[in-house]
Design a protein around this nucleic acid. Structure first.
Lengths: 153, 153
DNA sequence: ATCCTAAATAGGATAGATTCCTATAAGCGT
DNA sequence: ACGCTTATAGGAATCTATCCTATTTAGGAT
């Protein structure tokens, strides 16, 4: 199990404590442990694996609390999600090289093309993870419709 | 509902017919309609929305068929998925700008950093979709562990 | 055109992920 | 320490995706 350096973890925990205080959010034992688990891992855990890791020391921890906490951390900007959040799998039948704009609120996904972005230089170290098959750019933002509904954050 | 140009759609359908023939895969009505639906949309539909769109003209179409067909098209290389396929949501508490290597088989996700990739120029046209919040590069491939288990494809 | 067989489908059951509901418990300002 | 407000536990409900199997179909052979 890969771990974040202890000093860095403490730094992230302090950021969380500050952000929680600023937002008027209570610092419960559950929230601190859940944040410590996700901030301390290099493996981008799922809610389920966070729950599993903590249930040894907190046998009554509920799934609901893990999910609520992780989404709350996402709202605070301390955590993000890989890919378009929740939702179901989305399919893409565009055979040309292209890139994606993805709305963080509603999941809307649109293609855009860019010859320049098709030719990115990926650091050599990445091939230590495995063989590279494709590379593309993901732009995350808020789509026009979602902005119209809820202008600011 | 945004649609792909009719001529382009026919071209994609022809590619599918060829690929199916080459792979010894039967060209059923269901498969053709499902492919037409996903290849004709600019909105990267989910399996559920494909099913919904087709159920008017094919009331007995099953969910299973839609899923099987979409994964089959993915295996043929005619369709890809947005984000790490299936699985649950994955969380990321790394506050520094970074990019991802994602294994297409097992979903393993690892961070890597690159000052150069942090400074990508995104086409102006993308801001027509909405406000941009973050940009990062996703490298898709097969991780070392998965390659060891099943060397070639 | 008809037959045959392997492959594909429908439909319901099942598994897994995520959220909802509500009575109880705990944080934190005073 | 007290009380108000927010958070939690636990189970029920929902939703996504896959599995199972009897029936149907595509497409090559006749």
């Amino acid at each position: 199990m890969l771990k974040v350096d202890g000093h860095e973890l403490e730094r992230r925990l302090e950021l969380f404590r500050e952000a929680a205080r600023a937002a008027g959010i209570k610092l419960t034992h559950q929230r601190l442990e859940i944040f410590r688990e996700v901030a301390g891992s290099l493996e981008h855990p799922s809610a389920e694996s966070v729950h599993r890791a903590l249930s040894a020391s907190m046998p009554t921890l509920s799934h609901d609390t893990v999910y609520r906490t992780l989404w709350m951390l996402t709202d605070l900007g301390l955590v993000s999600t890989l890919g378009p959040k929740r939702e179901s799998v989305r399919f893409d039948a565009n055979p040309e090289p292209h890139h994606h704009f993805v709305c963080l609120r509603c999941g809307l996904a649109r293609d855009f093309v860019s010859a320049e972005l098709n030719e990115l230089r990926i650091p050599d170290s990445v091939s230590d993870f495995g063989s590279i098959q494709a590379t593309h750019v993901e732009v995350h933002g808020i789509c026009n419709d979602c902005q119209a509904q809820q202008p600011a954050d």
